[in-house]
Design a binder for these strands. Sequence first.
RNA 1: GGAGAAAUGGCAGAGUGGUCGAAUGCGGCAGUCUUGAAAACUGUUGAGGGUCACACCUCCGGGGGUUCGAAUCCCUCUUUCUCCGCCA
Length: 424
Amino acid sequence: MLQLQAIRDKKDEITLALKKRNFEGESLLTNILELDENRRNTQTKLDTTLAESNKLSKQIGLLFKTGKADQAKELKEKTVALKEASKILAQKLADTAEELKALLYQIPNVPHNSVASGTSEEDNEEIFKEGEIPVLSSKAMPHWELAKKFDIIDFELGVKIAGAGFPVFKGKGARLQRALIAYFLDKNTEAGYTEMQVPHLVNEASGFGTGQLPDKEGQMYHVGEDDLYLIPTAEVPVTNLFRDNLLSEKELPICYTAYTPCFRREAGSYGAHVRGLNRLHQFDKVEIVRVEHPENSYNALNSMVEHIKNILRELKLPYRILRLCGGDLGFTAALTYDFEVFSTGQDRWLEISSVSNFETYQANRLKLRYKDENGKSQLAHTLNGSALALPRVLAAILENYQTEDGIRIPDVLVPYCGFDHISL
RNA sequence: GGAGAAAUGGCAGAGUGGUCGAAUGCGGCAGUCUUGAAAACUGUUGAGGGUCACACCUCCGGGGGUUCGAAUCCCUCUUUCUCCGCCA
């Protein structure tokens, strides 16, 4: 959520920047400022009432002690009216604050300067491209056919025990997946990220902390009986580790990596473009999360991008990087780079990583702060990215590495797999 | 699942109705001493709101109540610990 102070200071600037998302914030922001004014006025009134009441209470105490019960009784009566008044004011304050918060939740993050306006993914800018797109034989197949041919992923079996979008990985397919997870975690650890294992279910407060709630309520699986949510990404539990934290400046930056399965309802998705591994209800992902000093967060974002580039180079997969336009930018992000690999069997680009800087937007909800050199509390910046999402990387490997009689395993993965090809 | 105990600042831990935003210790920060460091000593050190700055207000696990006044009493929820049961 945006900081009130920022809205007070530069409302016009924010309004303008939000237009890049096609978000008309003018009236909402005006509304917020009015409510804020309102809130502060009520607060002041309540404070003076309480101050008066506190003062009288002290006097009453003294009077009782000195045996002047009559006078105390007189003062007591005075406090009754104050009590009434403070009760009403406190209620009004709470209502106003809640209303204010509800409005603040509706405003997405302010896009970074470099973000272009745009309405859909069509308007994303390609900023980098690297790697050879392999030329395959005419018999080349999409990964779902390869998976069937070599019996490494069984989609029907998953339907039987859970439903569509819950594949079962078999034999070398399962092993390859595990190899990728281990390889990603090792790469991330090498790059200075601390490996974490976190719960796969989170409470409501965590959902709010990173912004999945209330915005994307319908996209998460909810366990009603215990009021817990299945995580849609490791970002949620890992970032929420820092909820309500006041760090010291020298603890920054904090770099974590975590492997988790991710659960997404994907309500409303259908059609050929979600075939095979392209879009799933449950998939594996290795995530990197950073908590950064505001001055360093864009350097950090760049280094995350470089890190992911390195991994894709090692895997020898052709990829490109897009800078998301305003219209495609996630609700909480200020700047996002998407990585896409080219999946030759389908002849299309697949998103395999999304790297974002949230600046203070998440930190403000999380109350994640650090103490600066003057001892003042400041909101930290949070960032995260996939390094990497498994299914589409797997899809791209299967498709790009297919040969006449099998599938080669990328060199870097051979030690993790224990085999160098998949064949009949 | 049953029985009992507990939850206080970064941590440990006192405080059982007013003088308590809270003793003390550790840790942190600044300084003295030292070639430097350690030790020792001195000072300082919770968060949020509000204000130009003060004043002032709120916060002792969450919520509610009693009272002129609550960290302290009552209700409730959550969590933790101990014992018993069950169990990967």
